[in-house]
Write a protein that binds this DNA or RNA. Structure first.
Length: 327
DNA sequence: GGTCACGT
DNA sequence: ACGTGACCC
């Protein structure tokens, strides 16, 4: 979900070429949810190996990343750490929605309503420990680094950009802008060659809206975030008007009266997020034999496809393509 | 979502 | 060269 800023910020259209040779920090949970919900059979059932283990996410990770690496993009995945206490309401709500969707999905599957089954299956995706562990294992075999966040992945991904370890954050959510991500890319996927690759620069967003980052955060709080409901009736456009009229604080006070959360704490989540500063990023050559072992022998993938994907990853290592290859 | 085959 | 759809596991 995340904060709804779409109505007021204008994306710049960019091309894969603009990301060539650059590292991109990717919110892993965000991506995994996307893969789990969309990579399915027509009746909504996920891809599975013969033991019943879900493999949709492995398919997504393998093919998307091998294709991105082939085009010169260097992915870094960021996994969520511990969610802030304030997120628990949102998490409970999401779990309820998922459980309900799962019930409808199972019923529709039984009654043979394929279309309905698929629709609700997509909303029922859960990230199990097995899915997270197998994703990390696959990334390692592919030679793609990942970072464990202390808190929210989006915040950690933004930190990587701040430190210069990544050029931009790739995420579908706008939250990373509130977390201070200097550059954000949306819709980063293999098919985003033409048209739908969106690029946002925090500096430009703030300049165009003529607001500060703190005001953007306050607007986000009024609109509603994962950490606290917003003020009823306030969307992005209204929030922007409030900022222009210098009425954000007034409305925040109003929201504070009815909110069970401390809004200063919410603000602090965005401004002073606990991040992991002790990470190492290194791209390695893919472990082709390991990939075949893991994906083909353990999870029933086609060997020719896996080998092909593995070969696309070959240019992936820290030294290659950069100056230190000469030293 | 990514890929491939098959269509125009 | 692009568009559609089946299939991937």
């Amino acid at each position: 979900m995340g904060v709804k800023l779409k109505d007021i910020i204008e994306p710049k259209k960019i091309d894969f070429k603009d990301l060539e040779g650059r590292a991109v920090s990717i919110d892993a949970f965000n991506t995994l949810y996307q893969f789990l919900s969309t990579i399915r059979q027509r009746d909504g059932q996920p891809l599975c190996d013969e033991n019943g283990n879900i493999t949709s996410h492995l398919s997504g990770i393998l093919y998307r990343n091998s294709s991105m690496v082939e085009k010169g993009i260097k992915p870094i995945y960021v996994f969520d750490g511990k969610a802030p206490e304030l997120k628990s309401d949102t998490q409970t709500k999401r779990r309820e929605i998922r459980d309900e969707a799962e019930k409808i999905y199972k019923e529709a599957l039984k009654s043979g309503d394929t279309e309905k089954a698929r629709k609700y299956a997509m909303r029922s995706s859960k990230l199990s420990p097995e899915i997270i562990e197998s994703s990390k294992r696959l990334l390692t075999l592919m030679g793609i680094p990942y970072v464990e966040a202390k808190g929210e992945g989006e915040a950690q991904a933004a930190y990587l950009v701040e430190k210069g370890d990544a050029y931009a954050v790739a995420s579908q959510d706008y939250d990373c802008l509130l977390f201070g991500a200097k550059r954000v890319v949306r819709n980063l996927a293999v098919n985003s060659n033409l048209g739908n690759l969106e690029y946002y620069e925090l500096r430009h967003v703030l300049h165009e809206l003529n607001i500060t980052r703190e005001e953007l955060i306050e607007m986000g709080i009024l609109i509603g975030t994962d950490f606290c409901d917003g003020l009823k009736g306030v969307g992005a456009k209204t929030a922007l008007k409030l900022a222009k009229k210098d009425q954000l604080q007034e409305k925040l006070d109003e929201l504070q009266k009815e909110s069970s959360h401390d809004l200063n704490e919410v603000k602090d989540i965005f401004l002073n997020h606990n991040v992991n500063t002790d990470y190492k990023i290194k791209w390695n050559k893919p472990d082709k034999e390991g990939l075949v072992e893991f994906l083909c022998y353990e999870h029933g993938f086609s060997e020719s496809r896996v080998v092909k994907a593995s070969d696309k990853l070959k240019n992936l290592s820290s030294s290659q393509g950069s100056l230190d290859a000469w030293f």
